[in-house]
Design a protein around this nucleic acid. Structure first.
Lengths: 225, 225
DNA sequence: CCCCTCCTGTACCCACGGTACAGTTTTCAG
DNA sequence: CTGAAAACTGTACCGTGGGTACAGGAGGGG
């Protein structure tokens, strides 16, 4: 029971790294069993086929992803009371986290599945879709909280704004991987942060606007983190 | 000569659609020759192996991509003299273009290659890298032109700002494909447009800032396109 | 007329996904 | 300690797909 779980996780670890580098089609079961140190029969004991492996891989990835976001943004929430400042801090922490990855971000399995979809069953595609929808809900919730305190400088749809976070992350990963520039992703997260700050905060170098903002919402910290 | 070129292009058409849906590893040469209506020998007459196919596919895709950007932004440049207004119009045109795609955006080959890299030779990876660098130069050039006339509300790095365009496009495609919501990509492009406008233009609902801006740069159209 | 481009046909090899199933070791609960 | 379930190993086999190797044929231009 315990042992089986451990082997299964080892297979998933090896598979995840391989899939993110070569895609599902480019990853052979053969190489997975060699690197994991088990036999083919052993592999098929844990996963009845490649589709099952993909399913487990994707679910594990999404769970882990959610956990990371939970940690970062709840940490930011503990440090900052204001929803906007807390979100901006969260993005800062996120950018630091991806900047500290030794070989750059390995890639996002959601994107991998997205570019491989037709070969998987509907269940996997639904899982993937729900993962993106969960991001939308998560960031949407945070933006709604922010909008209870701040009003955006320009009219924006909350869901689209929430999707912007996912877009920049997914796009940033693609750029970072393609350019082989690990810090590009972190920079993009900070650009997104600039966008969000600009959308909700008065310009830092314009006292004129700051005053106007204060008149409406009261004094808020205008400095960045 | 003429005939061969045509067959070659037909293979590339079929291959492009298949690869964007299933990835390179998930696309078999078998299915390509069936759909193209040629034999296996015929296929290998045109491409000595799958890597060669990928190379041709990627080069053609990038060329076409560049052509589309050239058209859109030169068209926008013809209609608007101001570099910022012209860029904003370009993004609007781009969002309309992707919104009009019947089945949504089919996917970006650059991203597909990015998530398959290790199985291709260095040449393809370099081609891919150069494509992203070309985007950076293209949009960077446009932002530099804008910055000769407007100064950004917040300090930003031009290259990072240029990369933001690529990020949002790549990320928007992933979201759109995964959610099976074709308009998500168009919405993300418009969100990016909001970002750029907000970065360089005074808030539309704030006459105070508009006045301040006018004092510096003279009267500009403040309404959006 | 011949040569070159653009294919078709056939035959074959190996890697990989997957199945089947018999047997063996490990683990852990009673 | 024991026995049954869990966690494997080993072997053999099949179909598909990537790729090679040629031999040969249609069709058009000089």
């Amino acid at each position: 029971m315990r042992k089986g779980e451990e082997t299964r996780n080892r297979i998933l670890d090896v598979a995840e790294a391989a899939v993110l580098q070569k895609g599902f089609g480019g990853t052979s079961i053969e190489e997975l069993i060699v690197e994991t140190g088990i036999t083919k029969s052993g592999f098929f004991y844990h996963f009845k086929d490649k589709n099952e492996l993909a399913k487990a891989l994707l679910n594990r990835y999404i769970e882990n992803d959610e956990r990371i976001y939970d940690e970062i943004f709840s940490r930011a929430r503990d440090l900052m009371d204001d929803p906007l400042q807390s979100f901006l801090l969260g993005l800062k922490l996120l950018s630091e986290l991806v900047a500290d990855l030794p070989n750059g971000h390995p890639g996002c399995l959601v994107a991998t599945v997205c570019y491989y979809e037709r070969l998987f069953d509907r269940e996997i595609q639904e899982t993937n879709r729900n993962a993106v929808l969960a991001w939308r809900r998560r960031f949407g919730r945070m933006f709604r909280e922010i909008m209870e305190v701040y009003s955006p400088r320009e009219p924006v749809d909350v869901d689209q704004l929430a999707d912007m976070v996912s877009s920049v992350l997914e796009g940033g990963i693609v750029l970072s991987k393609t350019l082989k520039e690990p810090n590009t992703l972190a920079e993009q997260v900070l650009m997104l942060r600039t966008f969000v700050r600009m959308l909700f905060l008065p310009a830092i170098e314009s006292p004129l606007v700051a005053v106007r903002h204060d008149q409406i919402y009261g004094t808020v910290r205008s400095g960045g983190l």
